[in-house]
Design a protein around this nucleic acid. Structure first.
Lengths: 184, 184
DNA sequence: GGAACTTAACCGACCGGACGGTACAGAGAT
DNA sequence: ATCTCTGTACCGTCCGGTCGGTTAAGTTCC
């Protein structure tokens, strides 16, 4: 009967740890991400966490990496025909997968609060995205405004800032969709 | 004029303390705001800081308050005739006073990271602003997009995210100005 | 096939430092 | 003298990181 290994899920504790970190960040705020708290949430000990991520920076960095991966994957699902598909993809990502995106933003907050350098990979990624979008569209300023508005949507939701009430949010989204479509 | 007290600036250490906090946040990240560090930066001792702000929450809260005040003051300078003057004011504030606005964003970050509830005053303020803007304009979705884009500009600069290079930023701003003007 | 050893994964006690907060003393001005 | 403000010393806690186990699963050699 060989037995199970340790308790329940033997391998790959890393994703569980990252998930725990996201949970904590979403529930109690980015500042509450502590190794012990993450360990408890993930169902293992502090040592276990530090085995997988030798330092807290590594943990945060890994968190952001995972978020970026998820984000990339989402963008990949957008039909490629679309000229400004990354732009459209960004918007749809923000809309569809609220959880994933909130987590991403939370990871950004946590990273920015502890060590701004952790944002470097994000910057690189965004740099590529923006460049691609701008070369694919002729009305660069309109495209950039769309990008900025999408970012605004992110932080607005993340910080629970007021949305204007009513169906304004939906109308804004619809408007953004048409703007993006018109960008061709 | 009697005399100075101890070292240099006798009264009203509070603004100096808040300024120190802003400096630290801008220089080392929002997470590095610590009472001792603030004290050192402000040129007084920990006790001095804690006399003016009995708790760290009070400090962060005061920081955000000051930022909101400064922001309000800026908005007040915008010609009142303008129908969407708050919207225009927001944009101009972001543009003109880079320091003040970056500090505001940093305070937001710091507050959000430590205790999300500290953002409540900000939420209230923004709620009023948005409501006013939306009632003053008939194209609500366009106005909201402008608001979101302006917020996007804030965080973009705060987190040093890529801007798209070239003069795109300027063109975006010009475009936003015209959009806002057309909203009337 | 089984003792001896290695390796991977994890535990949990502990350390040092930082940090928030308290207590109290003292200097200036009035 | 008293009130306002600031400095110094200190306490308890929390947190990141270290370190010596420990357990389970191979691996090697006979």
């Amino acid at each position: 009967m060989t037995m199970q290994k340790h308790s329940a899920e033997p391998r790959n504790a890393a994703p569980r740890i990252l998930g725990a970190a996201r949970t904590i960040a979403a529930r109690e705020g980015a500042g509450k991400i502590t190794i012990e708290a993450v360990a408890k949430e993930a169902g293992l000990s502090k040592g276990g966490v530090l085995y997988n991520f030798p330092t807290k920076k590594a943990l945060l960095s890994g968190l952001l990496d995972q978020m970026l991966d998820a984000h990339r994957e989402h963008l990949g699902k957008v039909p490629e025909r679309h000229p400004s598909r990354t732009l459209r993809g960004h918007l749809e990502t923000v809309l569809q997968s609220q959880e994933v995106d909130d987590d991403l933003s939370m990871a950004i907050l946590a990273a920015a609060a502890s060590d701004p350098r952790l944002l470097d990979p994000l910057r690189a990624e965004m740099s590529g995205d923006i460049e691609r979008i701008l070369t694919d569209t002729q009305d660069n300023s309109a495209a950039m405004i769309a990008i900025l508005a999408i970012q605004g949507l992110r932080f607005q939701r993340l910080l629970k800032l007021p949305e204007g009430g009513g169906n304004i949010r939906d109308r804004v989204i619809e408007r953004l969709r048409t703007i993006i479509d018109e960008l061709e």
